[in-house]
Amino acid sequence: MNWNLARKAVRLGKRAEILHKIRVFFITRGYLEIDTPSLIPAPAIESHLDAIQAGTFYLQTSPELCMKRLLAAGYPRLFQICHCWRDKERGSRHLPEFTMLEWYRSDADYNDLMLETVELLTDIAASYCEKGFLVVNENRIDMNGEWSRLTVRDAFRLYTKTSMEDALRDDEFDRLMTESIEPYLGLTQPTIIYDYPAERAALARIKPGDPSVAERFELYVAGMELANAFSELNDAKIQRKRFIKESQVRAARKAPPYPMPEPFLAEIDLMPPSAGIALGIDRLVMLLTGAETIDEVVAFTPEDL
């Protein structure tokens, strides 16, 4: 018997239970569960997301483009639980094939999604908490109290010796985020960091009144990134320019070029003001079941196959 597989039974059971709770949460709130193709002709063009090619198509890095075309066609509330693929991403919190929850709402912005994310997580986590606290490693995370929120600019001010602007200029943004900021986020309560630099949000709307940042937020619990959300950009002209800019960054790092997702660009002007969010299911299961690596919450890793 494959004991390594057999011993995962308890966690895989909880994983199924968590997926069920998520579906109940969204269906109760009038969200339509949708199932868009995994195999797409053109992924969203982002500097550092590499898709896996499959014939002349690609395996999706996220269902984002199809979900937004549905919003543009008048579907007001959508959610999807699906597999996504990101080439060469493998670590204790990364699998090249992983499970994503994405949900989208029209007539909403990232503030509305922050609230809904709090409600989702509080609801799902309740049965895995001890007296309202989630215990992860040596951290006790209060799931019922106030969540902390801080801007990315303040996070740099608080946790590093440099500013967000200088970090961007020196190409130190990602390194500082990984080494000096992320490990300290969400250790006592879930933490939202928001208002990312405009150039770090290819598909997000610029914040009215502050063109240097975009309406994007990320959720962290126990030092782990759990979800990424935006107020969605619904201007095809700006979106095309952003994709071209992202393509240039890709070319500079010798990453493969992607075709322009034309049908998406042709329709997003019709998308009402909307907000969308992507949450990593595997990482959520890691948190709720106390798993130290992503390997523990899936039946098979690529290395097991």
Binding site: E46, S47, H48, L49, K88, E89, R90, G91, S92, R93, H94, F173, D174, R175, M177, T178, E179, E182, Y196, R200, A202, E218, E225, N228
Partner: peptide
């Protein structure tokens, strides 16, 4: 050794 990638950022190898 671990792979890291802060929110849509570049791949980092710690």
């Amino acid at each position: 050794f671990d792979f890291a990638k802060p929110g849509k950022g570049q791949a980092l190898y710690r």
